[in-house]
Write a protein that binds this DNA or RNA. Structure first.
Length: 222
DNA sequence: GTCCAGGGCCTAC
DNA sequence: GTAGGCCATGGA
């Protein structure tokens, strides 16, 4: 298992290679909230099409989505995949927020821990989506774990692939300064690294982690 | 044609 | 508590 200084070293190397990414604040908290649900198991490029459609229809907001028909939403978000399921979940999640808090801003007034509990109670919002919303929309320090994070820490430090979501999250959070900007950019850096490795084959030639990665010489991170 | 992407839920053991 | 099935479009 990596120690705190190693996790900071990994961030330093990524940051030196990619620069500060200032990732995914979106135009509004509503947009980030909606995007977080749409991007589940889907490429961001397809999500952008869905978001553009929603925007064009004047439905890129929690309040407006809460009033829209599920079928209308489904048609607009079709490019993002799983569109029937996501339309239902989006509308219900937005309705829940409006009915219980009136707006995202009011919901985000909760402290991090209760906010996370509340979000996890909403159908369609699991741990990764909840943490993405907390970090990128509410701008509170909750580290986001995704498939890339798991693969990268496995390749670089031999962290077992079977580690639980909360286990890996704890590893980062207990070893890093609890800062929103750091958590935000760290996650963005790992996605950037994964994208680079997916595009360039064979990978790891220009890998910023080649100095520390266990598999850099013979395997790609993905 | 095949594979899989910035998951999550439900069901079965 | 966890493995397996399901949801679905678009790009490589």
């Amino acid at each position: 298992m990596p120690e705190g200084r190693q996790l900071l070293e990994m961030y330093r190397l990524l940051r030196a290679r990619f620069g500060f990414l200032d990732w995914w604040p979106g135009d509004t908290a509503d947009e980030v909230f909606i995007g977080a649900i749409l991007t589940q198991q889907t490429t961001w490029k397809n999500v952008e099409k869905a978001i553009a459609n929603l925007k064009g229809a004047g439905l890129l907001g929690v309040a407006s989505l809460s009033r829209a028909k599920t079928e209308t939403i489904a048609e607009l978000i079709r490019p993002s995949g799983y569109y029937r399921q996501k339309a239902l979940r989006l509308r219900e999640a937005c309705s829940w927020v409006i009915e219980n808090y009136g707006s995202l801003e009011s919901l985000f007034a909760l402290d991090l821990k209760p906010l996370r509990e509340v979000l996890l109670g909403i159908n369609g919002i699991g741990p990764e989506t909840a943490d993405s919303i907390i970090l990128y929309a509410a701008e509170k320090p909750s580290f986001v774990i995704d498939a890339y994070t798991k693969r990268i820490t496995n390749r670089v430090y031999g962290v077992p692939m079977g580690i639980s979501y909360d286990g890996l999250k704890q590893l980062f959070e207990s070893n890093l300064p609890r800062k929103t900007e750091l958590f935000n950019d760290y996650h963005a850096q790992m996605v950037e690294l994964a994208k680079m490795h997916c595009k360039s084959k064979p990978a790891c030639g220009g890998c910023p982690l080649s100095k520390i990665c266990l598999y850099a010489a013979k395997a790609k991170i993905q």
